[in-house]
Design a binder for these strands. Structure first.
Lengths: 253, 253
DNA sequence: TACTTCATTTCATATTGTGAAACTGATTCG
DNA sequence: CGAATCAGTTTCACAATATGAAATGAAGTA
């Protein structure tokens, strides 16, 4: 017996992972029934696993008995050396960009079909875009995500499209697959990507990729601003910062 | 058969949790043998669970086959409503403190015997304390941690001391338990705590607790600065910010 | 080459997790 | 107000699942 997802050695762990994923997709606490439906697990099984996760603080239950992500998840995450290298190198550049434009600068990393924000520099300014560290966005609605998709080539984009069905987050920017393919590929070509209110209405981004000594993508760097404040002139600065960071990471183009 | 730690319904999940904890205690990749020893699990079992976690990206293996935290952990964590309330309310105050003193301001939350940094405001300044979101510190070496310990009363402090054995991180500040008890209790009494290079040499903190409408501890707020820059005059500002945030969270003292 | 040490695989075994069904306790509805 | 519905939880007999001892493989050391 098996599910639709790729599977591994220990069943319970795969199932626990499914459940954690399902829970963290919701911003608000979720009911058992829904989690059971989302994951395709028997309610009884869902309940048992969930409560085992609760005992380990991976999941928490609110006063109504609904489930939400637990505190333990926060603490476990990567201060892995790998990420810290990028982080340490990138931060000064991020802070410089932040100060120059007074906008939010983010570092992201890919994991599966999403990008995860793992470091940020917030400007001193009344209104600014607030990205939460640890939050996620699907590849096709994030500037950095488009670059990642594009650098995988046409096949990767199509496979992604098929897998995810390209859910629209705000306006339906990509009604057609060729459109997305086009945009991703040209983004890679020109060395940067834009996000025009695709992840969230009112927010525009400029994204570039960072490379390490192996030539692989180390992370993504992006600037997020209220769309009406974002200026095209900023692009070259972001691109330049990206190149400098990559160089410091040992990348030689 | 059972371990020394408190246990729950599903064995594998408890064991996986043990392993994740063990891994994330190390900054560098760790060998199987060590994880096996740390957790008391049979090497074979350790290997099996570890690889199941790898298949789910909770753990990653570097080129030498050593284990480190996986990317999946980053993305899962709490943008749970609960935390976001505190975050949203506290951020403006944090940014104000950051701007006034040009030092790093952190939000922390307790989980088990550690505090976890989950939001920050970094100043525009060449040198400043850099706390990584998601990183942890044991209660007894963090300003906020001492307040948390103190608010639990004498019994809680003693139980914590016995459980953890109060490992020294820098200088051996607390050679004796009464000393720690003393400091925690007076900290609570005066409404703030200090950390004098106890977590890291050269870094000094000022911490206060934030309370919500239920009267419980919602989070901790702290200022971290190079020890020689930190001024006692700042304390009242941090305390004041803490009170204002608590008030906005619905706390009525 | 022989000796250690650690990682991985195998495999017989019973322990462990499974899910159908029964139970509980809300909430809705006639 | 009682019947019906539905979500959550507990129980339990069963077999699939995870277990760990031992064997094998891979690497490093003397």
């Amino acid at each position: 017996m098996s599910s639709l997802k790729p599977d591994s050695r220990i069943q319970v762990i795969d199932r626990a992972a499914l459940l954690l994923d399902a829970i963290s997709r919701y911003t608000n606490p979720v009911k058992l029934k829904i989690l059971s439906a989302d994951t395709g697990l028997h309610p009884s099984t869902t309940h048992r696993i969930l409560h085992s996760l609760i005992d380990n603080s991976f999941v928490a239950q609110d006063s109504n008995g609904q489930y939400r992500p637990g505190k333990r998840l926060l603490g476990l995450s990567s201060h892995s050396q790998e990420n810290n290298d990028v982080r340490a190198v990138a931060l000064p550049y991020m802070e410089r960009l932040r100060d120059r434009f007074s906008e939010t600068i983010n570092l992201t990393i890919r994991e599966g079909d999403v990008v995860i924000y793992f470091e940020k520099a917030n400007p001193k300014r009344m209104m600014h875009v607030q990205q939460i560290v640890g939050s996620r966005a699907p590849l096709h609605v994030a500037a950095v995500g488009k670059l990642i998709l594009g650098s995988g080539g046409k096949a990767a984009i199509e496979s992604y499209a098929q897998r995810t069905n390209l859910p629209a987050y705000t306006r339906n920017t990509f009604s057609s697959l060729p459109e997305l393919t086009q945009e991703c590929l040209t983004s890679v070509q020109q060395g940067f990507a834009l996000d025009n209110e695709e992840a969230e209405i009112g927010v525009g981004c400029i994204g570039v990729l960072l490379y390490d000594r192996s030539g692989g993508v180390a992370a993504g760097l992006s600037l997020s601003a209220p769309i009406e404040r974002r200026r095209n002139e900023w692009i070259e600065d972001v691109v330049k910062a990206g190149k400098e960071i990559s160089a410091k990471l040992g990348y030689s183009a």
